[in-house]
Simulated scan of single mutants.
Amino acid sequence: MSRRVLITGGASGLGLALAKAFVGRGDRVLVVDLADARPASVPEAVDYFRVDVRSQQDWDAVLAHVRDLWGGLDILVNNAGVATGGRIDVESISDWERVLDINLLGVVRGCQTFTPLFKDQKSGHIVNTASLAGLVHGPGMSSYNAAKAGVVALSETLGFELAPWGIHVSAICPAFFRTNLHESLQGKDTEMEATAVRLITKADMTADEVARIVLKGIDKHKRIILTDRLGRQAYWTKRLARPAYNKMAGKAAERLQRKA
């Protein structure tokens, strides 16, 4: 059965990979992103609408557009986000405000906007792109970790809160994979950002590989979707072998100290 899917930040990276994967399965997809005109990257089979996830006015407009286009929605993917990295005494408050407004409040706005529609339908699935950084909190990434941990907490909360209406909620928590996310870096801590660029560009997995795993997790209504071996190892080490996790994070902090 064909599903109606809305993906924020869907013109590139994981969002675009998810759009292609959904379309490949016969689903109807609406991609939203910041460009005024339809980006060339968006496949012909995919609809496009401009949305800045920081703007409630834009969210209201896309809700009306979805009602006109399809009369409802089956899956909302809150995927839009930016990369950031910085030590607490280097990264500016303005950088914090930017990442929280996009990566966390952008997700909150999407959930708030479409929850009434899902409740009316008594069905729907909210999929929020978090990160392994939402579960495992390494040093030098305070703002990004905090934003993504907030997305995980929001997703878990809504998973219980909205279940009586038949609404499922999932958080995607991938480790590093090859994408263009590093192009959104613009903070003060250039050394930490250089590390992030290296980790993203040299990662083993591609966005298409991550997207295929995510779709399987959505089909199974998983609350947390881990997409790779590194992520599963780090997550379960933190939960089940905390001393080993603390040692690993401590060594990362020592490496960071040598750069200071």
Rank of each mutant, 00 (worst) to 15 (best):
A171H: 02
L154A: 05
F177E: 01
H182A: 14
V152I: 02
H182M: 05
G81W: 01
S170F: 13
P174K: 01
R98V: 09
Y144P: 10
S92Y: 01
F160M: 14
A130L: 10
W96M: 05
L158F: 10
F177V: 06
L185H: 03
D89C: 03
F114D: 01
I172G: 07
A163E: 09
L132S: 01
F118K: 04
G134C: 02
G166M: 10
P174G: 05
L181S: 06
N180F: 00
D120H: 14
P116L: 00
N180C: 07
L185D: 06
L135A: 11
S123W: 10
P174N: 09
D95N: 11
R98I: 11
L181F: 04
E156T: 08
Q112A: 08
L158R: 09
I172T: 05
G187R: 02
V127G: 10
V136Y: 04
F118V: 07
G124H: 12
I126M: 15
T157Y: 10
V152A: 07
E91H: 08
A149P: 02
T115E: 09
H182Q: 13
F176K: 00
G166C: 12
L135F: 03
R178Q: 14
L181Y: 02
R98E: 15
D89H: 08
T84R: 06
F176C: 00
H168D: 15
D120Y: 02
S143W: 03
S142L: 13
K148P: 00
A83C: 04
L185S: 00
P139W: 00
G110M: 05
Q121V: 15
L185R: 00
L117V: 02
G110H: 06
A146I: 12
R98D: 15
L158S: 12
G106E: 14
Q112N: 12
Q112L: 13
C173Q: 01
H182L: 03
A149H: 09
G106S: 14
A133T: 07
A130M: 04
T157D: 12
Q186N: 15
E91K: 01
K119E: 15
T157F: 13
I167M: 09
S131H: 04
A133S: 12
L117W: 01
S143Q: 10
C111I: 05
W96K: 03
A83L: 02
L154I: 07
V99E: 14
H125E: 09
S92L: 13
F177G: 03
H182T: 13
E97T: 15
V99P: 10
V127N: 02
V90Y: 00
G85A: 14
